[in-house]
């Protein structure tokens, strides 16, 4: 006869299930990426996932913990998948492995493992790679629809050669819409949309990219419907990004891009629904998550507009991770029976 404390009943959901749902929800985005850029992203995802789980298991072994028990929560898998999606397709294999090593070992396990990491592991891995290997990290494949007619997407053999032997594939890369905007010199928005092949081939924010973003948006809506996370952080981020870009919008040559351009470019939707919603490194209360999301949205626009990097989801998220405890401090919810919310440092009222 069991002698355990209440509650004796439990909802069916477990952490592992939640994580698997997240992985599942990346599917529309993954499909869109594969259609646009070829199988490179799929390969990245596979390699990053496997290496992340190997690193996780190794560290668990070193820490004297049951590796299988911890692998079953699938958090390493999620980190691997997210990192793999963030890396440029057909990048060298060591880049992927280094990234997942940094993510799992440095950003997660050295801080105490699952639940204790102050920063989003995948984003730490991404930023370390971006700073250390800028050349490899900024060569993004051009979407299929803008490739010259003579050229098709990267084939399996040449792709593998590039990934494992460093034999470069010719002409598969192209400037992303964000790159184009950053490097714009003297063209109006309309001119840009007419001259750049990617933007020209697209409907709203560039060929391929807009579909990738819509894919991740769909996945995110699915997770929202599944109540894996709350709407607060993603909605706050997208709203803040849309509002700031609308505020600074001009169609002239100094344009920083329209709201719809920003919402469907780069890693916007991927970040909003798969990175911001990492509960471990975000703010905890609903009010806190609103502030957290809005902060990322604003930072993202500021960095896209005025920094040297064309996209900045990783930087914005990491900066907001820094701010999360501070946000938590000021956004404690008002508890039942109390007049107002308390600060964490305030003593008992009576």
């Amino acid at each position: 006869m069991l002698r355990v404390t209440s509650p004796h009943t439990h909802s069916a959901r477990s952490t592992g299930q939640l994580m698997r749902l997240v992985v599942f929800a990346t599917l529309p985005g993954v499909v869109a990426m594969t259609l646009a850029f070829g199988w490179g992203s799929l390969f990245n995802v596979a390699l990053a996932s496997v290496s992340a789980m190997v690193f996780e298991a190794a560290i668990m072994r070193l820490r004297g913990r049951p590796a299988l028990f911890y692998l079953r929560d699938c958090s390493a898998l999620v980190t691997g998948v997210l990192l793999g999606l963030a890396l440029p397709p057909y990048c060298p294999w060591w880049l992927v492995v280094t990234g997942s090593g940094v993510s799992i070992i440095l950003a997660k396990q050295l801080y105490g493992g699952m639940g204790y990491n102050p920063f989003n592991p995948a984003m730490v891995g991404y930023v370390v790679l971006l700073i250390s290997f800028p050349v490899e990290m900024t060569q993004w494949a051009a979407p299929a629809s803008v490739l010259p007619e003579s050229q098709s997407l990267v084939g399996l053999a040449e792709g593998l050669k590039q990934i494992f032997a460093g034999v470069p594939v010719d002409g598969y890369t192209g400037a992303t819409p964000l790159d184009v905007l950053k490097q714009n010199s003297g063209q109006t928005m309309a001119g840009l949309y007419n001259s750049d092949p990617t933007l020209q081939a697209g409907m709203l924010a560039g060929a391929g990219w807009e579909w990738v973003n819509i894919g991740f948006l769909l996945g995110g809506l699915f997770l929202l419907y599944q109540r894996v996370f709350t709407w607060h952080a993603p909605v706050a981020m997208l709203t803040a990004l849309g509002l700031t870009s609308a505020l600074f919008y001009s169609s002239g040559s100094d344009s920083l891009g329209s709201p719809i351009f920003h919402l469907l470019s780069g890693a916007t939707m991927f970040g909003a629904f798969f990175i911001l919603t990492d509960p471990v490194s975000s703010a905890v209360s609903t009010r806190g998550r609103l502030v957290y999301g809005a902060l990322i949205g604003i930072l993202l626009f500021v960095m896209r507009g005025w920094s040297n990097y064309p996209d900045a989801v990783a930087f914005a998220v990491l900066l907001a991770n820094f701010a999360a405890p501070f946000i938590d401090y000021y956004t404690l919810p008002r508890t039942y029976g109390h007049q107002k919310a308390r600060r964490a440092t305030e003593k008992e009222e009576h």
Binding site: V4, T15, L18, D73, S75, G113, G115, V280, V284
Partner: peptide, 15 residues
């Protein structure tokens, strides 16, 4: 019987 506890991921479902 209750399952073994895993790490808190601060998912906020409790809040």
């Amino acid at each position: 019987p209750p399952q073994p506890a895993q790490a808190c991921i601060r998912c906020g479902l409790c809040a």
